[in-house]
Amino acid sequence: MNALQMLIDAASVGGLYALTALGLGLIFGVIGLVNFAYGEYIMVGAYVLLLTAGVHWPFAILAVLIFVILFALASDWLVFRQVRRAQPETLMIVSFGLSFMIQHLYVVLFGSLTRTVNFLPEINRSIEIGGLRVAGVSILQIAATIILTTALALVINYTKIGYQMRAVSENPRMARLVGVNSNRIVAAAFAISAVLAVTVTVLFVAQTGSMTPFFGVSLTMIGFVATVIGGLGSLPGCALGGFLVGALTTLLQMMLPSHLQPFREAFVFAAVIIVLLVRPQGLIAVRSAWERV
């Protein structure tokens, strides 16, 4: 395996984590919520893929998309909107509670066994590009990361919903005082984060073919760590952080001697701690304008 091939693998996993981190970072940016239930959007989506196993794949993906968006909107409407003005730590605990509740509801309904599904086996086939053998899913992961990150940046920076989101993010009360329907803007942020979650679900399930009621949590944990090292509240920071954590995990997997590989995460998190010791504000600190009175 040569270096370029390793880089492609690292980039594809990094991309998956970057998308996870972006979904978390977007909601945090708009309403200050660290949404641990985000992992449940990913997990629930995977089970919808499982249930729609026989269905032609575009319809299966459409079903997941619709279900997860509605699920995310419902979580906002039924839970988070009720505690909108609470402290950030309260919001985080609420999202923890929601996350646990959904996981265990799943265990009650479907059991806690690992389920497997053979979703889109075609994209796991390797393709040869200029002498490199690359898994199709890696290419998809990298492409999805580039497309969605760019699209999100364009929406945030250049559309009406984008500047309204930034306004709500900076000063929710003032945004309402100039007529921004903040509930609708927050709902839009949840819907966009659900789209990112669905992308992660589809790529993850296509690649691994398996799921447990708890796999969303581990992804969210990594995504959360990524948002913190990238700079909480900065979307480019989230993407960068996710990318670095994913890439580092993959590279360690490939380069560590085999007896150390089970402890791969220890090395990843040691690196995270070092980054935070050196740059506690994250890699990309949130740019804030000077206050002048």
């Binding site: 009406k160 306004a167 900076e170 100039v178 804030s288 304008a289």
Partner: peptide, 26 residues
């Protein structure tokens, strides 16, 4: 009914033009 609050409360991270556009949200 519109209010211009004490301390202005402009959206500091939006540019001038975007601040005006947010004012036309409805």
């Amino acid at each position: 009914i519109s209010v211009v609050p004490e301390n202005r409360e402009v959206f500091t991270k939006l540019n001038v033009h975007e601040n005006l556009l947010v004012g036309a949200s409805l």
